[in-house]
Computed example of a mutant assay.
Amino acid sequence: MRILVVGAAGTIGSEICNALEHHDLIRAGRNGLDVSVDNTSEQSIKEMYEKIGKVDAVINAAGGANFASITELTPALNERGILSKLKGQINLVLLGHNYVNDGGSFTLTTGVMMDDPIRMGASAAMANGGVKAFVKAAAIEMPRGIRINSVSPNIVQESWDRLGSYFVGFTPVPASRVALAYKKSVEGAQTGQNYEVY
């Protein structure tokens, strides 16, 4: 399969590439290994698809949100989660479904915070929940047999030193385990699912 991995250089993205290394991978990101893309820019997404052409699957492991308490979370700070984590992922589907071959797939990324809230995580939880709802609804009308799923990772072991203080009482999981959920989405047959790796 020819698979586009957006966010391929990240902690989870690199493990996704390892899990799917037997496929023809196109590694994308802000500093793309094969192609550059800024998922907050519709034009950048369009140019990426035009450059790479048809693929069998699109995986997104990119997108961020600001961590701030509700009393400190401003509309401006919240905008990062909307533009990157929420709208950026959805635009990969809206602008890319014509580039995905019949019977192909999209796999987006949500996250544990929408199900198990943490302090300062409301913006990320909002974006994660929006992506999950989009995937579930979009699955019933994706064209040409294209499937769509999302993966909801827990905090990963590789990020624990940097982010663990936010996730009090959580048990981190290895990024390699999270990557298997993306493999399941791409190589499996399900659609409309949110694979929780908690």
Score class of each variant (00 low, 15 high):
residue 165 S to E: 03
residue 74 T to I: 03
residue 70 I to W: 11
residue 96 G to I: 13
residue 120 M to D: 11
residue 56 D to H: 13
residue 3 I to T: 12
residue 34 D to T: 04
residue 103 G to T: 15
residue 140 I to N: 04
residue 76 A to P: 00
residue 68 A to W: 03
residue 2 R to V: 12
residue 9 A to R: 06
residue 31 N to C: 10
residue 63 G to R: 04
residue 95 L to I: 09
residue 154 N to Y: 07
residue 27 R to D: 02
residue 130 G to N: 03
residue 29 G to W: 01
residue 95 L to Q: 11
residue 11 T to S: 02
residue 85 K to I: 01
residue 103 G to F: 09
residue 166 Y to S: 06
residue 76 A to N: 12
residue 128 N to S: 01
residue 40 T to F: 12
residue 62 A to Y: 07
residue 92 L to G: 09
residue 127 A to P: 00
residue 190 Q to L: 15
residue 135 V to D: 08
residue 138 A to R: 03
residue 108 L to P: 08
residue 148 I to M: 11
residue 186 V to G: 05
residue 52 I to N: 00
residue 152 S to T: 07
residue 67 F to I: 06
residue 159 S to H: 01
residue 58 V to P: 01
residue 141 E to L: 10
residue 117 P to W: 10
residue 67 F to V: 13
residue 136 K to P: 02
residue 115 D to R: 04
residue 174 P to G: 01
residue 16 I to M: 06
residue 169 G to D: 14
residue 138 A to W: 01
residue 7 G to H: 06
residue 59 I to D: 00
residue 57 A to G: 13
residue 52 I to S: 03
residue 111 G to V: 02
residue 124 A to I: 15
residue 194 N to L: 06
residue 39 N to C: 10
residue 118 I to M: 05
residue 80 R to A: 14
residue 190 Q to P: 01
residue 86 L to Q: 12
residue 165 S to D: 11
residue 42 E to F: 14
residue 61 A to Y: 00
residue 20 L to D: 01
residue 155 I to H: 12
residue 140 I to K: 15
residue 90 I to S: 09
residue 189 A to S: 14
residue 193 Q to I: 15
residue 143 P to H: 08
residue 108 L to Y: 06
residue 116 D to G: 00
residue 169 G to V: 14
residue 129 G to E: 14
residue 143 P to I: 13
residue 96 G to L: 11
residue 64 G to L: 02
residue 24 D to N: 14
residue 12 I to P: 01
residue 10 G to N: 08
residue 15 E to D: 08
residue 193 Q to S: 10
residue 185 S to K: 03
residue 28 A to W: 12
residue 119 R to F: 15
residue 132 K to V: 14
residue 26 I to Q: 04
residue 55 V to S: 03
residue 164 G to H: 09
residue 93 V to P: 06
residue 140 I to R: 11
residue 15 E to S: 04
residue 140 I to P: 02
residue 42 E to D: 15
residue 171 T to K: 14
residue 41 S to T: 13
residue 132 K to I: 06
residue 171 T to M: 14
residue 92 L to W: 06
residue 100 V to Y: 02
residue 33 L to T: 15
residue 154 N to E: 10
residue 53 G to V: 07
residue 168 V to S: 07
residue 160 W to Y: 13
residue 14 S to I: 04
residue 8 A to C: 03
residue 64 G to T: 02
residue 42 E to G: 12
residue 136 K to T: 13
residue 75 P to T: 09
residue 196 E to A: 12
residue 53 G to M: 04
residue 50 E to F: 01
residue 130 G to F: 02
residue 69 S to L: 04
